[in-house]
């Protein structure tokens, strides 16, 4: 191939149509409150984990909904399940269950169960 000293850049969009949203669907079916998050950031502000390392439950939820699963797969085990997020969520999202279900969904997707 010819080296021109520059390249064709890849698009950086969230490829919404192609992305796999099955993990999000798996969670939403079992924990409908997953759908009503308004991305307020209360959970992530108060989260013990997010204080020191990159972990925002708000961010992970929106990423799942957009099918950007890989980042979530990497980060979801960082939660300590302390429950502080449940205490503050203004929408009453059952955050701990969302996390547990996300973990379960990733586990099952490895085992080709979903």
């Amino acid at each position: 191939m010819g080296d021109f000293g520059f390249t064709v850049l890849k698009e950086r969009h969230i490829n919404y149509d192609a992305n796999d949203k099955s993990i999000a669907e798996y969670i939403a079916e079992r924990e409908p409150s997953f759908r009503i998050c308004i991305e307020c950031g209360c959970c992530s502000a108060t989260c013990t984990t997010g204080n020191f390392i990159r972990f925002s439950l708000r961010e992970l939820q929106i990423l799942l909904k957009r099918g950007e699963n890989e980042i979530v797969r990497e980060q979801i085990d960082r939660c300590m399940l302390c429950g502080k997020c449940i205490l503050v969520c203004p929408r009453g999202v059952n955050t701990r269950n969302v996390i547990l279900l996300a973990r379960e969904a990733f586990r099952k997707s490895v085992e080709n169960e979903i």
Partner: peptide, 12 residues
């Protein structure tokens, strides 16, 4: 105050 700067994506 504890808050997440959701647009910057980090707790503030």
């Amino acid at each position: 105050v504890k808050v997440e700067d959701t647009l910057a994506g980090r707790p503030l």
